[in-house]
Design a protein around this nucleic acid. Sequence first.
DNA 1: CAAAAATGGTTCCATATGGAACTTGACATT
DNA 2: AATGTCAAGTTCCATATGGAACCATTTTTG
Lengths: 162, 162
Amino acid sequence: MTEPANKPERMEAIGILEENKIGAIWQICFIANSFIFPIYARFDREYDLSRMEFVVLYVTAHRANTMAWEICGITGLPKNNISRGVQKLQKKGLITRVADPCDARRSFLNLTEKGTELYEKLIALYADRADAILSLLDDEDRAALEIVTLKLSKRLAATKLS
Amino acid sequence: MTEPANKPERMEAIGILEENKIGAIWQICFIANSFIFPIYARFDREYDLSRMEFVVLYVTAHRANTMAWEICGITGLPKNNISRGVQKLQKKGLITRVADPCDARRSFLNLTEKGTELYEKLIALYADRADAILSLLDDEDRAALEIVTLKLSKRLAATKLS
DNA sequence: CAAAAATGGTTCCATATGGAACTTGACATT
DNA sequence: AATGTCAAGTTCCATATGGAACCATTTTTG
């Protein structure tokens, strides 16, 4: 059942990866897609959790009293999708939503104990898969990649591109 | 109209980018999304071209006599989506489809002149935007990033991850 | 303080997406 | 040649997605 590692069509991908007119960006997208799709498919299959739900879970795990609009700003995802993610998580009892006394439009989001438990499980899978990919590099290259992608992503977050 | 470069929610994103349990992968996805979404939105808005159409256009521009199943292998996208992209491009007169005499199920895809013209225009926009992002790094970092992402993406393409 | 603008969030709708079933054609085994 | 298996593409369907209109609250402004 294990397919040969180098199926011809996969090898063809390599040629296109070397295209240099668009530089590292196509490669970065290729790596991101290779990571994201399988992991979200797995979350959906094994935990019945959609991408939007995971995103909300993830951000909320990192910041107590998060508000929906903040998740939008952090992730760049549209607010209607975030809204749906929040609703589903709340229905499943994975997060709590408490109205902000200062502004009735907003509410504070926090993980429940159950939500924290699930998050711990998922983030472990997430980290394993990330590690499986990054392990294709030797330690030196991996360290270099981490330094440069952190720099770039931080600058990108702080910049308003046209 | 120009927003301040450092809106609070964007700065919050930076904190999360520094999360190290999942290392460079979250950052890579962040960079990829920051690139992909705006550029495809623009292609759709200004050229009425969907993501799938662009993908087919792109691969076909790189390989004469491409077949649909090859595009699937190269990009990892499902074949029904590719099929739709091919149909739309053909309807618009941007690619030609000629049945393979050796196997009636398959056909060879090639850009028309009109298709080539459009491709040239789009890839220039694509490259400009890629450059705008990569220019946030100094030359040394940028060179390092390009080397390492090429290595990683090539190994990833040649590997069958779980 | 009333009217207008803005903001957080939800709902509506039209489109994009991907899994699965299906169609047609190639090919292997008998 | 009949049969079963596989492969390339298409179609069907149920879900995900994101823009736009909308609602309910602040906040701003005259």
